[in-house]
């Protein structure tokens, strides 16, 4: 089984300490091409900290974060700044939406193109042919992405004026603009109503299937997780307590205990 070549992200024994507090304790996780992997667990289990370690917002205390970008050589990215992680090809969204509020929806997506374009200050002043081509390409590409997440009609609105669900989708579009091979979504369905969640669920699968982007997501909405995930990792108190397909996880006694307390079988 050609497993090694297939992996996109490989996290081995990741540990993150904040002073004396161990927020993440030797967690290992893989994401392979074309997969949707979910990371679940009760509040405070260390899921977002894990995300922050992988995307370079924190520098992990111990462990390895290895990426195997398709058609490029593998790298160990511990302690890389998050802009470098994104440039390598892993883009993320945030649990509490972090859009550029006072910029238009389109501009938000255009920022995602920043690391794939090269115009310098001088280039921006001179506006040469290459700059203009890049600029137009950025605009076109951003409109395309807005269309994909169904935000085309909002293109010239300020991001802060969008309805909540649309803001979540905009974050996804912005992350997709960086041409990632892996998308990390931190609670994309938080605060959405069931209808919006269903639309999101379709969107995530569509991103995976048509854009060929693998997805790692943190989510509390069990229905969404069970519907779309290929594999699920479960964390509790910083430790990984289970992993497997949706059916395994649903019936795993440890997971049930973590979520419902010890007397779950009653």
């Amino acid at each position: 089984m050609p497993e090694i070549t297939n992996k996109l992200l490989e996290v081995k024994g990741l540990t993150m300490d904040f002073g004396g507090l161990r927020a993440v304790d030797t967690v290992s996780l893989d994401v392979c091409t074309g997969e949707i992997v979910a990371l679940i667990g009760p509040n405070g289990a260390g899921k977002t900290t894990f995300f922050n370690c992988v995307t370079g917002i924190y520098k992990p205390t111990r462990g390895d974060v290895l990426v195997h970008p398709p058609a490029k050589k593998s790298q160990r990215i511990n302690g890389f700044k998050s802009n470098r992680v994104t440039t390598i090809g892993m883009a993320r969204t945030f649990q509490n939406i972090r859009l550029f509020q006072n910029m238009t929806v389109l501009e938000n997506v255009m920022i995602g193109r920043h690391c794939r374009t090269t115009t310098s200050i001088l280039g921006a002043i001179l506006r040469g042919a290459k700059t203009m081509r890049q600029e137009q390409e950025t605009v076109n590409r951003s409109y395309d992405l807005l269309e994909k997440v169904d935000l085309f009609k909002y293109a010239d609105e300020f991001a802060k004026n969008l309805p909540y669900g649309a803001q979540r989708r905009l974050e996804i579009a912005r992350a997709m603009a960086t041409d990632p091979f892996l998308l990390l979504l931190d609670e994309p369905a938080a605060g959405m109503n069931p209808q919006e969640t269903r639309a999101l669920d379709e969107l995530i699968v569509r991103v995976r299937d048509t854009e060929k982007i693998a997805i790692l997501l943190i989510e509390h909405d069990m229905k969404l997780v069970m519907n779309i995930s290929d594999r699920i990792y479960v964390m509790e108190y910083g430790k990984e307590i289970a992993q497997g397909g949706p059916m395994d996880i649903r019936n795993n006694p440890k997971v049930i205990e973590a979520y419902l307390g010890e007397e779950a079988d009653a």
Binding site: T86, R92, M103, M110, H114, S120, R174
Partner: peptide
């Protein structure tokens, strides 16, 4: 004016709006 409507100008604005998100979108802080 030219700079404001360019890749650089947008990155500056994004930095103003939210530094963490801006860096996470691949902008070199």
């Amino acid at each position: 004016n030219r700079l404001k409507d360019s890749r650089i100008g947008r990155a500056w604005m994004a930095l103003r709006e939210d530094e963490i998100a801006c860096v996470a979108m691949g902008v070199d802080m």
